[in-house]
């Protein structure tokens, strides 16, 4: 039963990432794209954790936490760039 639920969850997350990708390509503004990219990162973390759970071994944990960290730093850098036209003040 758990395997079935993990498969359903993976399908749901794939659809979610498709939605994010649509928003990423469609825009209309740069800020929309930044937001879509941020959500895409979070969903990627979720997908990696699910892959771990399916295997029953924590193999992708480091990858998941790296994506979470770098996604946040990337979003902040993009937003800073949009606010000031420069990343380092």
């Amino acid at each position: 039963m758990l395997n079935a639920s993990i498969n359903v969850a993976i399908i749901m997350l794939t659809i979610a990432m498709g939605c994010n990708l649509w928003r990423l390509l469609r825009g209309p503004d740069v800020t929309d794209r930044v937001l879509a990219l941020d959500t895409l990162y979070i969903n990627a973390v979720a997908l990696l954790i699910l892959a771990d759970t399916a295997d029953g071994k924590p193999l992708f944990y480091e990858a998941a936490i790296l994506i979470a960290l770098l996604g946040f730093v990337g979003t902040v850098a993009f937003a800073k760039f949009l606010l000031r036209g420069d990343i380092i003040e």
């Binding site: 039963m1 639920s5 969850a9 749901m12 997350l13 659809i15 979610a16 959500t39 969903n43």
Partner: peptide
């Protein structure tokens, strides 16, 4: 196992709803 499956399914559907909101 049931509790764990429910939590995973609920979590995934919330993630999906958030992305639908984005669209």
């Amino acid at each position: 196992e049931f509790v764990s499956a429910i939590l995973i399914l609920l979590g995934a559907s919330f993630a999906l709803i958030g992305s639908i909101g984005l669209v």
